[in-house]
Write a protein that binds this DNA or RNA. Sequence first.
DNA 1: GTGGTCTAGACCACG
DNA 2: GTGGTCTAGACCACC
Lengths: 121, 121, 121, 121
Amino acid sequence: MDIAISNTSDKPIYQQLFEQISVQILKGELENGYSLPPIRHAAIELRVSIITVKKAWEELERHGLIYTVTGKGCFVANLTSKEILQKRNEMLLKQMVIDISYYKSFGLTLDEVYELLKEIY
Amino acid sequence: MDIAISNTSDKPIYQQLFEQISVQILKGELENGYSLPPIRHAAIELRVSIITVKKAWEELERHGLIYTVTGKGCFVANLTSKEILQKRNEMLLKQMVIDISYYKSFGLTLDEVYELLKEIY
Amino acid sequence: MDIAISNTSDKPIYQQLFEQISVQILKGELENGYSLPPIRHAAIELRVSIITVKKAWEELERHGLIYTVTGKGCFVANLTSKEILQKRNEMLLKQMVIDISYYKSFGLTLDEVYELLKEIY
Amino acid sequence: MDIAISNTSDKPIYQQLFEQISVQILKGELENGYSLPPIRHAAIELRVSIITVKKAWEELERHGLIYTVTGKGCFVANLTSKEILQKRNEMLLKQMVIDISYYKSFGLTLDEVYELLKEIY
DNA sequence: GTGGTCTAGACCACG
DNA sequence: GTGGTCTAGACCACC
């Protein structure tokens, strides 16, 4: 578990958990079939509530990134590299559409956005 | 008042108000000294509470975009085009830093981000 | 009328008027019997409402700094230099007691206050 | 909670709350990480509205004196003694500049102010 | 009429 | 239980 949680962030903790584990799976850092730590262990290690971990795990399952075997644990889904790429782009594009609509509201063109992004990167 | 409020959005109403009016000011759509509608009128027109409007207006004032004169009304601040550009970039960069950290977590390079942005734009 | 009014100040306008004229009288800049401009003239010159000027004048009269002769106008009261000094200290001390209670709430000693004041002066 | 609210004061309640708690934090009376009472409890105890407490707490957070964790509570920020001193002077100087401009309008010199302060202290 | 403040009560997300 | 938000209605000071 290589997770960093911020209490003061405006993002709910379960969301932070979901996002970070999603990324790890979609980057291939967690292999197919990898067994996620039991909810209780993860909760203790991350110092969060069991409910919070459960919520994050549920969100992962809803996105088809993990599957649960009752009584055995949770495992990273068996995804082909094509499926991984597809899901990754799906998540990225979903966020980008939101981000871009914000930039557009200021009347920015694509090139202006690019210039600003370059500065930060 | 050209404002669209979404009750289903995850963003609080006062935040939506603040953002939309900010954009209008920073795009120069509302001229210096322009008199905003009285909070009570705005509240009725937008079908929200007075306090909600007030909260948005306060945030605008805190950002130096408007100023209020008790008993007279609220007015768009007298900003030079340089100041407007500066404030606009301030707001944009603040959001972009967040957006980029998300893209980076997926391991995306600047060029990959650009390619995706181009598709959506 | 050497008065500077700020619309954006948190102090009400009539209060600003009252304070500035008080100071001028108590500093001896306006002599005994000096005729204040008619309320209407002052209102026009200062670009404020007649009501606002009236309120300030009333406050001045209540403090014994001016007197009104119906149909003739308002005049600076005939105060001996002793009375002026007394009224001046009265106003100053009243404010200072408030200021000091604020400094004291932070646990500041007289010397610490002096040091900070010296910096600003 | 050692707070005294005055309904007759010209200062708004949320401002009184903010100032008094600020002072307690900046005097070191409330330690780092100290958990403030839940806003609802504070509201009942102080016999004010939840929103009023919230407004004061928000102002404290804006000044970096506390931080809130949704669902957990509000806590005194982790400030070094250096930061505390800096914030304290910031608040004090801001007020002192106003106070001094009033004294100066009467033509008082620094020494005269000092003499008067000494009398009252 | 305008902004400034306050209240009581309510619903929701989070942990 | 905790904070986050919202509403409807009210009173006040100021102009």
